[in-house]
Structure formats: structure tokens, C-alpha cells
């Protein structure tokens, strides 16, 4: 077994699905049943009209994630599941920070810190100002630390969205799914297809 298989790390699970009420529950239960924590979950439209896309982040071993992926793919309305390490995806999270306006106005240092961290103002009121940053976890985390001493009032971070570096999208695949006789690539999960690389006889 490769080292990757037994070492825990962040995995980005991408799930292409039909738009179906209750499906989120079905997918979430696959994790909760194994007492697995979902670190981040995002649902959104995909590049294909009518097809939804879930981005789920977990901290797990490849072995467990591949089993989970197949359990998810088994759900009737799920078209396809991919799982990737952070290296294999481009990902972003967005965060909002509410800070007293007075502090920013008075302390030039704060303004510099915000600038350095790439923060953008989204709302200004006399009592507070809301900043936004987008980036990796470390980046959004860092700004919390920076702003804490200056009376950070409120913080929130969005779920992660991720794009798979290797993917050429789902349009062509969907057409194959719609046909009664789909090709190998569509039917079989990555794991089985690349099996020769994973195990040797």
C-alpha cells in the first residue's frame, strides 16, 4: 500500500449530482455514519445546466476516502465522484471580518495590515467596517490573528470551492451518461481504472 493510502490529509471530494431534494441528507449521512467530520461543504451549480456540484472537504486517509467516494457514487442521483488532494485542485475560501470603523480610522497600522493581507472593503458604516479576503485557509486565518488585537467583532468563512486541475469538465461525460451504453471511463470510478497503478498482482 502506498504511503498516501494510510496517511491522513485533506481531500477535496467533488460530487456531480442531479438536483434532488433530500440528496444532501443522503450524502451527509454517509459521513456521519462513519463518525466522520465534514470540514467544509459547498453546493453549487456546475458547468452543466441542471447538474449540481458538491465540494466536500475531509481530513482522512486515501483508503477511507476512496471507500466513501464509492458509497456516494452508489446513490441513485449521483453521477460522478472525484477525490483529490489539495495539490490536485485549485481552491479558495472567502472570509468576512467585521471591525470597528473607529480603529481603522485611527490606526494607520491596521490599514497597512489589511492591505498586506489583500483585504477588500465590502461595507462601511460609521460604527463598523466589513472586509473580505479570499484565499487559502492560512491566509484567511492569518487575518483573524492580525485583527484580533483591534477588536474584531465578527468573523465568518465560507465553504471551500475547488476546481480539479486535471478535469476537462463534465459536458462530454454527461452526454455519455445520457446514452444507454456509456463508455468505460464514465461508468467506472477512477480507482478501478487506475488500479494497475495501485496494486500489483
Amino acid at each position: 500500500m502506498s504511503e498516501q493510502a494510510i496517511e491522513k490529509q485533506e481531500y477535496n471530494i467533488t460530487v456531480y449530482t442531479e438536483n434532488q431534494i433530500g440528496l444532501l441528507n443522503r450524502i451527509a449521512m454517509i459521513f456521519s455514519r462513519r463518525k466522520m467530520n465534514i470540514l467544509s461543504l459547498n453546493t453549487s451549480p456546475s458547468e452543466v445546466e441542471g447538474i449540481h456540484r458538491f465540494n466536500i472537504v475531509v481530513h482522512e486517509t486515501q483508503e477511507v476516502v476512496s471507500k466513501i467516494a464509492r458509497q456516494i457514487e452508489k446513490q441513485i442521483e449521483v453521477l460522478k465522484v472525484y477525490f483529490n488532494t489539495n495539490d490536485d485542485v485549485i481552491w479558495q475560501e472567502m472570509a468576512l471580518y467585521k471591525v470597528p470603523t473607529q480603529v481603522i480610522a485611527e490606526k494607520a497600522k491596521v490599514e497597512r495590515l489589511l492591505r498586506e493581507n489583500g483585504a477588500r472593503v465590502v461595507a462601511i458604516r460609521s460604527d463598523y467596517t466589513v472586509f473580505e479576503t479570499t484565499g487559502h485557509r492560512e491566509e484567511t486565518d492569518n487575518l483573524i490573528k492580525v485583527l484580533q488585537p483591534y477588536g474584531l467583532i465578527e468573523f465568518v468563512r465560507s465553504a471551500r470551492v475547488a476546481i480539479i486541475k486535471d478535469s476537462d469538465g463534465f459536458n462530454r461525460k454527461l452526454r455519455e451518461f445520457e446514452r444507454m451504453e456509456p463508455g468505460h471511463e464514465v461508468v467506472e470510478n477512477e480507482f478501478l481504472n487506475s488500479r494497475d497503478k495501485v496494486f500489483s498482482m
Binding site: I76, L79, L174, M180, P182, V187
Partner: peptide
């Protein structure tokens, strides 16, 4: 019903 696009009851034999 004979086909649901998101459901593969019988995988292709390899």
C-alpha cells in the same frame, strides 16, 4: 423505466 442517467445498475464487464 429502463435508464436513469445517474444510475449504473450493471457495470461494463472488463
Amino acid at each position: 423505466c429502463e435508464h436513469i442517467r445517474s444510475y449504473r445498475p450493471k457495470p461494463i464487464v472488463r
